[in-house]
Nucleic acid binder design. Structure first.
Lengths: 250, 250
DNA sequence: GGAGTATGATTGTTTGTGATTGATTTTGAA
DNA sequence: TTCAAAATCAATCACAAACAATCATACTCC
């Protein structure tokens, strides 16, 4: 039996079970323990499994390398805090919409909930959701290169196939009278549609977005919940009179 | 026995099994070990299999390295030739569908036409189209991680917003009686819808796909044009009786 | 007939294998 | 907890299998 054949057998066994024992593998393959050990060492180096005493175990999908990068390097501390807080609002079996944008992107590495389904119009979001092993859907639509978001009627049309438990939306302005706003009307149309189709909507934003207003209106302030990093006492007092705010502690 | 015949035998054996042994191949073909080794070296250079100690293994089509220069490094000479030929069929102002799959991916760097609009269900295709400055749309749908294709009703639904001048489709089997086929019925549904909505459809494939048939039917042989790399005289004669074939010269 | 290619045999070298060793980890009973 | 037996481990060895390189022969296409 070829080395390659044994490798295939070992990996296939590991698709069905969490762990395989060395003794088990010697029986299935007819090879000696030494050979199996060498196989396991090779496969571990290729990051296709993880060695454990007495055999080998599945390498979990969620432990891919981007984890560290994304969690520690890619985003500012403030964005990560807001992302972590937003991710904690997701429950098992939720059907989600996750909007394009860096603030919503930062929540994905922190999602702990199991068995969720996520629809997104963000190119990187789609990739990241799949990398972390979540069931990922894409809205479709025109790829706007500057923001790597899919927008326009294609995206709205794609959204109309789904209903959501929760929508996590990015936003550029959160204003006491103007409500939630964003500069691009095409993106606003997508956010509006997602908002309409979700039982609960969350606008995830950092402190710089408060008391700003931009061109295109999405919805009124009290129709959604704000998720944010640390903000000033003043801002908090002003906005929590009008709507729910969830503020990250750190 | 001709070199070409042995190559076909070897590749066919590898479609059914994960690995083949050299000794096995000497028995089937009657050739010496040296000859088989040379065959395997050739086929490995064409990226149609992967050599392993004692034989050869299926080539896994994972792992695209996005930082490489796609024109020179990412694809085999055969794939590039087919891609270049397919790209040359695109005219200015065309509205295109470009299917997911490595063969169709290889055409994107060669597209010279101006002012085109391209819709795709391939994740990498979307990125590459945008990188090369084309107007890129995405069908949407569920991201199938293994192939990085978006499929299912979401993708079909997304497609129904568009009509195409030309559709470039990937395929796993091109068979004289079974027509064009692919293993996954969900992907077949997407290809079918794209085929239906295009004035002209092209199936882009390498030589190994000829006279193969897989599970899900897409359409009949004479309803589309085949774009391929170099194939044997025998194959060309058989297929050009039934439909148009465009074969890359090199 | 001669240039170019494909083939099979032979060579010395490299790689994969199973057995053996003593070291390390796990287990279970005191 | 502590200790000893059992299981598992990494390291090493010698042998066998597979390897690339080379050569001489047979074939094909001008």
């Amino acid at each position: 039996m070829l080395t390659e054949e044994r490798h295939v057998i070992i990996l296939n066994l590991l698709k069905e079970k969490e762990v395989v024992k060395i003794h088990e593998l010697t029986e299935v393959t007819g090879a000696s323990e030494s050979t199996i050990r060498r196989d396991l060492t090779d496969l571990e180096n290729a990051e296709l499994l993880r060695r454990v005493h007495g055999g080998a175990a599945k390498v979990s999908r969620k432990r891919t390398e981007p984890t560290m990068d994304e969690k520690t390097n890619l985003f500012s501390e403030e964005k990560r805090a807001a992302g972590r807080l937003a991710a904690s609002l997701i429950e098992d079996n939720d059907c989600l919409f996750i909007d394009a944008g860096t603030t919503t992107l930062s929540m994905i590495p922190f999602i702990q909930a199991k068995n969720i389904v996520a629809v997104t119009n963000g190119f990187d979001h789609l990739r990241l959701l799949a990398e972390y092993g979540f069931e990922a859907y894409c809205t479709g639509g025109r790829l706007k290169e500057s923001t790597k978001a899919m927008t326009g009627t294609g995206a709205v049309h794609g959204l109309q196939q789904y209903w959501f438990d929760k929508a996590f939306l990015g936003v550029n302005g959160i204003h006491l009278t103007a409500g939630y706003t964003t500069p691009d009307p095409e993106e606003a149309a997508v956010k509006k549609e997602a908002f309409k189709r979700a039982q609960q909507s969350f606008f995830v934003a950092d402190a710089s977005k408060f008391q700003e207003s931009t061109f295109a209106h999405i919805t009124e302030l009290d129709k959604a919940i704000i998720v944010t990093g640390k903000i000033t006492d003043n801002l908090r007092r002003m906005f929590e009179e009008k709507t729910d705010i969830k503020e990250a502690l750190t």
